[in-house]
Amino acid sequence: MLTRRSMMLASVAAGVIMNNRTASAKAAQPATPVNFDVPAGACDCHTHIHPDPEKFPFFSGRVYTPELASPEEMTALHKALHMERVVIVTPSIYGTDNSATLFGMAARGTTARGVAVIDDKTSESDLDLLGKAGIRGIRLNLATGGVNDPNVGRPRFTAAVERMKARGWHAQLYTNLAMISAIKDLVMTSPVPVVFDHFGGAQAALGVEQPGFTDLVDLVKSGKAYVKISGAYRASKLAPDYTDCIPLAKALIGANPDRIVWGTDWPHPNSVTPPDKKITDVTPLFQIDDGRLLNQLPVWAPDAAIRKKILVDNPAQLYGF
């Protein structure tokens, strides 16, 4: 029997793009021009799409409700940033329904890849259709869901890797340094690439000596893990340049520049519903200047050849552009 999910996957894989005229997102656009030469083929490796919820309903078990963010707005963002490629990641607000991500990918065509969220009900035929649509990995969100117990994180990671190894996809984790330390041995023996979101959950104010950061650096150095130096505003409170991220970024890049990718985390969702609000109340997106955010990359990686690895070569290898 065809489920709604299967029908959506099949239609997106065939290139059907749904109408999104009713979306009225308030996602930020860059206010600061890019101040360095962005190499051809550059990729924003971490974004989300939040289309019209009447067509792409939110997951009932979500912990926040964001403002909308459309493919058209994402295209405008990347034109301003000189980014030709994009990776769209399914956020927690959709549970295991990847339809919104597939919709965003279809709007971008061959310049887009995606990272999906699945569970044990996701069939192999579903994964086949996801692959045809451009999905190249699955995401375990252990942060937004508040999963801090290694006894939960370890089996979830193992199960994800087991399903990915036959396809050559990667496993992406949104988690913290304590969990990374707890699964370090599993990552070191993983048969598929492992990708950590947003500086691996490191907190810039605590510096490179914070517990767990050495484990993250070791995994990068070994070549077993990639790290997204993305969402600097999640690691740092020193807006707008997040200068305390410099030591973290340089340590990770210095460990192995072939295992670092960059991303905006656009449209910058705030996943914490205020205590006086309901989960179904809309929580405004963070207003981040992505031009200024991108301009930190030459501070973190002064060598243009290293920046090309981070923006072009590493994403091409990881996502199959």
Rank of each mutant, 00 (worst) to 15 (best):
F196M: 01
E73N: 12
P315C: 06
A80L: 11
L311H: 06
P247D: 01
D313P: 08
L140F: 04
F36N: 13
L285S: 02
D215M: 02
K121Q: 12
L294D: 09
P150V: 05
L186R: 07
S125I: 07
A202K: 07
A143D: 11
S11P: 09
S125R: 13
G212C: 08
L129N: 08
A28G: 10
V161E: 06
A182D: 05
G61Q: 13
N148Y: 12
H48D: 08
S70H: 07
G291P: 05
L9F: 10
T47P: 01
P66Y: 12
K55G: 13
N314K: 11
P66N: 10
D276Y: 15
L77W: 09
G131V: 10
G207E: 15
E162D: 15
I135H: 12
Y319C: 03
R292D: 05
M83K: 10
V312I: 00
P315S: 05
S70Q: 09
F157G: 09
S222I: 00
G145T: 10
G137N: 00
G104I: 03
I260T: 01
K221F: 02
L102E: 02
L9I: 11
A239P: 10
H50V: 02
G145M: 13
F58G: 03
A31P: 08
M1Y: 06
K132F: 05
G223E: 04
V220Y: 03
M164D: 02
D97K: 10
V117S: 00
I253Y: 00
Q203G: 13
L311D: 10
D52K: 02
R167L: 09
D258I: 11
F286V: 12
N20I: 01
D97C: 12
L248D: 04
A116E: 03
N176D: 15
V63W: 06
G254R: 03
D44N: 02
A255M: 00
D126P: 08
T3V: 02
I246Y: 08
Q317P: 04
A106F: 07
P39E: 15
K55A: 15
K309Q: 14
T65E: 14
A178I: 01
M7Q: 15
V195M: 00
D185L: 07
G223P: 05
K26W: 11
A232W: 04
F56S: 04
A25I: 14
S181G: 03
G146V: 13
M74S: 07
L311Y: 01
I306Y: 03
I260A: 02
P267D: 14
Q296M: 12
I288W: 00
G231F: 03
V194E: 03
A316T: 05
A28K: 04
F321H: 10
R5S: 02
P53V: 14
M83S: 11
V117G: 01
A143Q: 10
A27M: 14
V87R: 11
P240G: 06
A107W: 09
T32V: 09
D290F: 14
K308G: 01
P211A: 11
E209M: 10
P30A: 15
A31I: 15
K277W: 14
L216Y: 01
T96N: 03
P155I: 10
P315K: 04
P33D: 07
T273Q: 07
D241W: 00
F213S: 11
S181D: 03
G109D: 03
A80R: 15
F56D: 12
